[in-house]
Design a protein around this nucleic acid. Structure first.
Lengths: 340, 340
DNA sequence: TAGTTAATGATGTACGTCAACCAGAAATAA
DNA sequence: TTATTTCTGGTTGACGTACATCATTAACTA
């Protein structure tokens, strides 16, 4: 049995190919009774239009711009590698991808990158957002011009972006707390939280989720004000080392952003026994899981995130439906025993 | 800038379109020096073949058969729903999918289903395997006839199947043990393992991983012989209830297969306080997580598994490369605090 | 050397859909 | 009445690649 084509539908409905095409693409110039007849024939014959042929005929191709942090954390390196990988791979599907790396934690740089596109927005923009008035305004301006925008990894929910592609960061924080709660055996003590920056909404949200659970379920544990490490290992190590030296009541730690290497170094040189949850699966966190410095790592899959962003941008460009199940980005938990 | 076509390459290389085509499809009849010239032009111009146009011209379409358990566990219901969903969705990409549901835990039924195809194997078969000589032979026979075969969820590694699509079950078992180890606070006690069947390799492997970690790291915990519940809630409940009544040293439980509802019911009526890890995210396990009957659930994503199987079958049919990163099926961990 | 074969290159058509263009018919305006 | 617009629906040629077929040339065989 060969595929059913629009031509077959045309014959069955007693009209020409052009009329079927008009119905298919919701163009005007067809009497309602004819529309119904064609639709009935399509349904009856189980016709499905061939996407490849359609794209070919349309000459449709896509151009998406990705604006991402040039940060040197393992996670952002992964993200950039994935964008590069998918860029090569997508060419055969008529999708071009343009990646712009901008200095991390710099809202002006993001705005400048958008300006730098100088109107050549293509069919959509994906960007890793930073919480800031000017970035939000830039997003809203783009949307006002009809440009499709998705935020990745870190969102700006009160902007007019079409969609956010990333994990549920509050849930991530909650899981971290759930785990830490069970990992810490001390009857009482302090918990340190190491973050990257307060202008990264994903960090703020993880912290929020973490505190929710800690407050509600762990009255015996005291969450200290977070240490802001700007995603730089050196700064993290320095600040955390001081904290560990000054406070011997610390029994647990949640590293929710970049600079994990600094966390590992500080803990290992402090020789303190504490339970640790972190993010990022890098060679450093792997080693730390194996050595026991870190107890669990919560990971968001960079591959999935980038692919999802492309699929979502494409669906937006085509005004097509988004498969919610496929686009839900999962939080993975790695412990020493399930390192991939 | 418009796309670069084979015609452009031909002009640049000073040959005809046909020659470029021959080079592109590795057909004979082109002098090596010409091949090199064309390849150089393609590389230089960054030519990428339009997949849609190629498929259209080839008239290529795909037919894949899925043989899956008709079991009534939440997980297998999900799997079947996903296959149905992707069946509808794939038609526009010239992919037809045929699903055959067979009685669970029945190797003969799988073999019969393959026989029932009566040679109409299409472009490949995906099946949820059961450990059995006859199933392995059936797979090997298919492969000998050049039929592409992938196993899903539960593998038969010593068969000649092209590939397995599913999680690392040993790792899943290890994570379960890692978590349970930290959840159980009692200084000593017994651990119950509830499985579906010894002929499901995924169950056997999870058990294996679980024991590895338990043996190595939890000398204070004694893992009892597993309870085999045939994935039926009633049988599980009955067997587990008896076990719980007879043994008051039980402090933890790992439910690694189907019949989770039986586990929940048995524990809730026994009123015993034990730490529980299970599989499947269903309304029952959700409720049990919230009520505290279950502490954590390890989940394999049905959506991802089915999609991956289709992508892999397609790549096999085209002799194309498989994107390993994308096809790695992840193990998700759900606790009360990160229920999606 | 003619005759045959193999190697290579050129040409045209098909794939399924889209969309520009054209042709009647009916309705409206002058 | 004729001219003009609106509404319907048909004809036709892209789009980029695959592949069969035909034409030419080179390389052999006898």
């Amino acid at each position: 049995m060969s595929r059913i084509t629009a031509q077959d539908v045309a014959e069955a409905a007693g009209v020409s190919l052009a009329t079927v095409d008009r119905v298919l693409n919701h163009r005007k110039g067809v009497r309602q009774s004819t529309v119904d007849r064609v639709n009935a024939a399509m349904a009856q014959m189980n016709f499905v239009r061939d996407q490849g042929a359609a794209n070919l005929a349309r000459g449709r191709s896509y151009l998406f711009n990705f604006i991402v942090s040039a940060g040197q954390t393992a996670f952002f390196k992964d993200i950039r590698n994935e964008i590069e990988a998918i860029r090569k791979h997508s060419a055969k599907d008529r999708i071009s991808i343009n990646m712009i790396a901008v200095p991390p934690l710099d809202s002006q740089a993001i705005v400048d990158a958008i300006k730098g596109l100088d109107g050549r927005y293509g069919d959509g923009i994906a960007l890793v957002a930073v919480e800031s008035r000017i970035v939000r305004d830039a997003i809203d301006t783009l949307r006002a011009q009809g440009v499709r925008v998705v935020t990745m990894i870190s969102d700006i929910p009160n902007s007019r972006r079409d969609r956010f592609v990333g994990i549920d960061n509050v849930a991530a924080g909650r899981v971290a707390a759930s785990l830490l709660k069970r990992f810490v055996s001390a009857p009482t003590g302090d918990i340190v939280v190491v973050a990257g920056s307060g202008i990264l909404r994903d960090h703020v949200e993880r912290r929020m989720g973490f505190e929710q659970v800690m407050r509600a379920e762990c009255p015996h544990l005291n969450v200290l004000p977070w240490i802001e490490g700007e995603e730089l290992a050196d700064i993290v190590e320095q600040k955390l080392s001081r904290e560990l030296a000054e406070n011997s009541d610390i029994v647990g730690l949640y590293s929710l952003g970049g600079g994990t290497r600094g966390v590992i170094d500080a803990i290992e040189s402090a020789q303190q026994d504490l339970s640790v949850i972190s993010t990022e699966l890098s060679e450093h966190t792997r080693a730390a899981l194996i050595s026991g410095t870190i107890d669990a790592v919560l990971v968001q899959d960079a591959t999935h995130e980038v692919r999802s962003a492309v699929r979502v941008l494409r669906a937006l460009a085509d005004n097509a439906a988004i498969n919610e199940k496929q686009e839900r980005i999962r939080i993975e938990i790695f412990m020493r025993d399930n390192l991939a």
